[in-house]
Every structure is written in structure tokens, then in C-alpha cells.
Design a protein around this nucleic acid. Sequence first.
DNA 1: CTGAAAGCGCTAACAG
DNA 2: CTGTTAGCGCTTTCAG
Lengths: 338, 338
Amino acid sequence: MSSRLKDVAALAGVSTRTVSNVVSGTGAVAEETRARVQSALDELGYRPNVAARNLRAGRTGLIGLAIPELHSPYFGELAGMIVEAAQQRSWTVVIDQTFGDREAERRLLEGTGGRLVDGLIISPWALGPEELTGRSRDVPVVLLGEQQAHGVADRVAVDNVLAADEATTHLLSTGRRRIAAIGVQPHLRNGTARQRLSGYRQALRRAGLRPEPALERAVTTLHRKHGAEAMSALLEGDERPDAVFAFSDELALGALHVAVERGVRVPEDLAVVGFDGIEDGRYANPALSTVVPDKRQIAERALQCLADRIYSPASTVPPLDIVIPHRLDIRASSGRTG
Amino acid sequence: MSSRLKDVAALAGVSTRTVSNVVSGTGAVAEETRARVQSALDELGYRPNVAARNLRAGRTGLIGLAIPELHSPYFGELAGMIVEAAQQRSWTVVIDQTFGDREAERRLLEGTGGRLVDGLIISPWALGPEELTGRSRDVPVVLLGEQQAHGVADRVAVDNVLAADEATTHLLSTGRRRIAAIGVQPHLRNGTARQRLSGYRQALRRAGLRPEPALERAVTTLHRKHGAEAMSALLEGDERPDAVFAFSDELALGALHVAVERGVRVPEDLAVVGFDGIEDGRYANPALSTVVPDKRQIAERALQCLADRIYSPASTVPPLDIVIPHRLDIRASSGRTG
DNA sequence: CTGAAAGCGCTAACAG
DNA sequence: CTGTTAGCGCTTTCAG
């Protein structure tokens, strides 16, 4: 079985104190002793027991990442970058999926008291601002993509209203006038969909158009399937839209698929713009225009926030509100026609 | 700060033993005492310290998942299912990305001695069979998608040769004769690409065709970009293929994109089949035919293996070799023409 | 420079 | 039914 510090000490003929010093590089050890200890270490293939070290240190070197679902490309890409950024800081990431479940989100937020993790990055869907403000948590928390909670915890998100406005304005600039929005989510409390809707309406109004309820389609999830269903409904409606702004790339890809399948010409008859900048969109047919949040920066800043709070627990810096830049990638699905 | 068992005991006027019993539901506790302890528990918002519990129990409740990259749809979907299956077994998953790096893979495999995790699921890319057989590890390991290592550890994988044969045979059955293969990876040691290539060749030979080196395209990664590049090269070649079998859906989607963009009619002029059954393919234009491994079952069986080894460490059951079923989903990209 | 020993918070064997 | 206590393996204070 695996050997302990004590075994190594016995083999090298020194105390555990000295072995510990050699392992961690702490303190001063005579060169001769160090060599002897090192060979004992190698011979036994010693690995420090993480649990014991954690218990002693009061830190685990783990951070939690709680996201709705790992299989969606957006969260998959983001999670990958967070894991990578964490590795660079010598942290290990523990992943939980909430599936947008209120209880799961609440449990994770409150259950962090077990000190399994030194910090938590959570992307809440079902939890509203008031629920995020629970009893004060004992590990630092960073909220991802949540723009309603003020002063509760550090937040990292793009400016959804602005981004949606830009996407819609782009469609208007190509001459579209009946622009549908796919992705309204009245059942979620995180405000993302609401903000994108509001940016969309804002752009329409500025162009002198009036938002039409028939063009604002609700979905139960952000998956392709529901984008496809929403598109079907729109195509079967009385007045077809000439453009679609989908609140996620997945919805947009579902919509695109249905449109192309039914012989609608994209972008000539229908322009499509998505949101998230996932890799799939780049290779879709036609390639999908999309709002691209700087995911790499989301990951970096979120970890930076955690690091600051973890290493300076006494810090009185108020909760940060970090706005991540985004850009609009215009591709074939909304390319200017003739 | 967070309270300890001792604090709760003091508040409730009992010993830590009793509190421990209440928390864990072990032993018998008088109803009256239990109530008193419970209210003390609630009042202090007690959470057991995971590190201490782990140290005591010799288990952490964590399992490691080491995959090349989280952002690729295949691994994203698979990781999601593994996290889900682990949650059901009350395990938490720690994710590491190896990016197919030999050193990273080796480190993870050997570094499991720290007992951070109770078990490890790893999908090796760069490590060959001989390297997998290192010093005997002290936590159970499950190999994913590795079919060369015999008797080293439990393995869970689809029958790549068979699956590739089926995909190729399907293309042959639609009348294709110049079938290209995209995805040869001479630099990787995990054997997956080699096996798919061998299944592909086997099908060709059975049909009386001879494999042509010009039609077997190597790639450096399985990403869409390299599928696109391989397709470009094929289209610019002297004799165009009338079908493509890509060793991953991502490669297939990259190829599909380039083909459609250049006006090649799919499936009339070119049929495309991928491998992995990722969600993107279903909504591609045209929808992508693909070999679909039962990912849910991969996740389930891998966890089952770990559970068996972890809970019966003394088991003498030899390393298992689990073959996961797959199916061929024929969609528009290879639909029979005329 | 190195040894002895306390203690992180918890569980469980051993009393009572 | 409940209290006392010995460690799990490590780091670190205090001596030497």
C-alpha cells in the first residue's frame, strides 16, 4: 500500500519533520540528509496524502464549478477554459451540473460549507437575486452571467442588453424589418434571456419598429431542438419573419437547420444571428453569424476573482462587477444580400 | 467561521460522539437528545469538514476524469454523462484535461497516489499500452476508448474496427466507390484511429476494392478545422472522392462545410459519414450520418467498474474488457441517391 | 540542522 | 443510550 511520511522517516533514519521539510522544500536540510531522504522517498514511491494535508492546511486546492450542463457547447467550451486556467494556478476543478434546477443550485451555494472547495464559480439559472443573497457563505463565490444580483458576490458577464442590441441592429442594417427573437425564457430567473430580449426591443424601437409578440418566441431550453421547433412555428405563421435573432447559438443552429431543410434561402430570404460564439457555428451551412463573448477572459477573470478572495479573506473590497467584452462575428447566415 | 462537531456538542450539552451519531444517522440516539442536537446543528449551520472525514475514512468521495479536452463536443457530452452518473453514486468528479500530452497523461496516471481521488477514468491519447502498464497503481483505473492495452486495467470502448467497417460498407451500399478516409493519426498511440482505418480498409477489400493511400488523409487533431483542410485537399486532388468517412463527427462537419461551400452537392456528389454521434451532426445541413457509440452506457459501465474495484479492493477479478454497443445513424449526408 | 509532540476535525472502538 | 479517547497523515511550534 502507499507509504506514509513515517515510513520514509524510518527508512532514512530521520524524523518525520525532516522528511516533511525535504518534500515541501521548507526549512534547511543538510545536503547529505536530503540525499538520504530523497532516495528513501523514491524507493517507497511516496505521495503525500492530500486529505491529511488539507485537514492541516484548511485548504483543499479544489474549486467548484457549477454549471447547468456540460454537454452544451457553450458550457463545454467555457468549462474547458476554466479547468485550464485553474490548472495554471495549481487548482483542481470539481464539476457539478445543476441542469438549471433550483434546489441543486441552492444546495451547491449553501453546501460549500463542507470546505470541499476553496471557492465556487456558479452559473445560476433558476436562482433569483434574492436567493443568491443567503446566509453569508464561508467560501468565495463568483457568479457567471448573472446581471441582476448586486453586491452579493463577484459577477462576471457580458453586457447582454448591448450585445443583443448590436445583433439586432446588424440585422436591421441589412434591410430586415420582420426580425423574430427566439429564446425568451419566462421560467428562468437569471435574467439573461430577459436582457437579450430587452436589447432586441430597444434596437427595434430605435429603428422606429414596434416589437410584435408573435415574433418573440419562448423556449423551454436553449437546445437546438427547441430552436428548430420555434422556427417551424414561425415558418408556419401568417407572416414569415425575414430574420431571426436567437438567444443562443444552439437555438440558432436548430432554426437554421429547419429553415434550410424547408428550402428557405439563408441569408437571402432569412438572416440568422446567434449568441455564444461556439465552434459549431463557424462550420455550419451557412456559417452562423453570432455574438461572441470572450470566453477565455470570462474564465480568467472569474479565477482571478476567486484567487483574490481566497488569498485575502479579510479583504474589504466590495463585490466586483466585471463586464466582459464581446464582438459580433458576421458570417454567411446574415451576410448582406445583393 | 464554520463550526465544528465540538462546538455543536458544547451547545447541545452532549459529547461529540452523540453529535456525530446524529449527523451520520449511525447508532441509536434518544429522541429527545436527537432533537436537542439537531437544533444546535441548525443554529450553528454545521457542515462536516470533508478533509477530516476523508482522512479518517481513507476515501475522498472524488473520482478523477482525465480527458484530452473538454471543449470538443464528444468529450463534453461524455463528461456530462460521467458527472451525472457519478452524482447518482454520490461521487464528485474532478476533471483534468491532458490535451493529448504524454507527460500530462503519465502524471495523472501515476500521480493518483496522492489519494485525492478514489478512482480514475482516463481516455489516453498519447500513452501506448506499455506505458499504461507502469508500477501498479493504488487506485482503480478505467481506460476509455483504448483497445490495445490488455490486462492492464478495466477498459470500456466500442468495437472500432467493426464500426468503421459498417460505416464504410454503408457507403459502398449506396454505390460509392471512391471513399476517402479522413482522420488517420500516426502520431497518437491510443490505437483508435488505427482501428478505424483498419475497419475501413477491411470493408473496401471485402468489396473488392483496393485501399488508396491518396484517399487516406492524416490529420493532426480531430477538430473541424482539420477536417476542412483535408476535404479541401481532396477536392483539389486529381480524382475526387465520391464519399468521405471521417473518424470523428467534428472532422466530418469540417469536411461537410467545405464541400457545401464549394458547391459540391451532398449527398448526390459526395456522401459523408462521421463518428461519435454528437448532437451537432443531427442539425447540420445536411444532417450528418454517423456512428453513434452508446455514450450513456460508456459512462455507466465505466463507473460501475470503478465502483466494483473501489468497494472490493481485494477482488481478484481480472481486468475487464467491456465492448459498448454502437449503431449507425443514417441521415441526409449519406442518404441513398436516386 | 533535527527530534518530539501537538493538533487540524472527524469516526469508531471501548467503556460505562 | 452516551461519554472518553485514540488515531487517520500531515505540518509546525518548541526544544535541543
